[in-house]
């Protein structure tokens, strides 16, 4: 079976060991994690975890079923029709190309978020494939540091 990419949202009880239960499940059963984000859901005792994974359809089915089995897991959503976004922060050395960097960020719906004495930080939030392209394009401005966030997704 061919591997497919899946974005899975997991709604969990916001308690101390819940993330280790999830990541431990993936490690213990040999499932792959491409990215993982977690944040509390406002005004609730719950958290939202988003995992991007790859595997055969049988493996993906096992992942969702095994996640369901964990006691603190309320809901597992295997996304199909979704809006998917990822964020990246890139630090560039400050030269006379500030305008170029700004133009690049804006081309990817991003912006300059900080300018220091010797560096400038750009931020882009977009679909993962666009983030990849942005990082490639920013290569010509000699980025000093690239920090990529995990994917978050919401069903349409």
């Amino acid at each position: 079976m061919e591997d497919v990419r899946r974005v899975i949202s997991i709604i969990v009880m916001n308690e101390s060991s819940v993330l280790s239960r999830i990541s431990g499940l993936f490690a213990g059963r040999g499932f792959n994690i491409e990215s993982l984000t977690v944040a509390p859901i406002p005004d609730s005792q719950k958290s939202h975890i988003t995992i991007v994974t790859k595997g055969s359809l049988r493996v993906i089915e096992q992942i969702t079923k095994q996640l369901h089995k964990l006691i603190p897991v309320y809901k597992v959503i295997e996304h199909e029709e979704m809006i998917e976004k990822e964020m990246v922060l890139v630090k560039f050395p400050l030269g006379d190309n500030l305008a170029d960097i700004k133009a690049l960020c804006e081309a990817y719906n991003g912006t300059i978020v900080n300018v220091g004495a010797s560096m400038v930080i750009g931020m882009v939030a977009d679909e993962p494939v666009r983030i990849k392209h942005f990082i490639e394009a920013s290569g010509r401005y000699n980025p000093m540091e690239v920090v990529r966030g995990g994917v978050v997704a919401i069903e349409r």
Binding site: S16, S20, R21, G28, I71
Partner: peptide, 16 residues
């Protein structure tokens, strides 16, 4: 203990 027993219990609790 909860870390070690996570993969070999149905569930576990540490009482806080």
């Amino acid at each position: 203990a909860v870390g070690i027993s996570r993969p070999c219990t149905k569930h576990n609790f540490l009482v806080y």
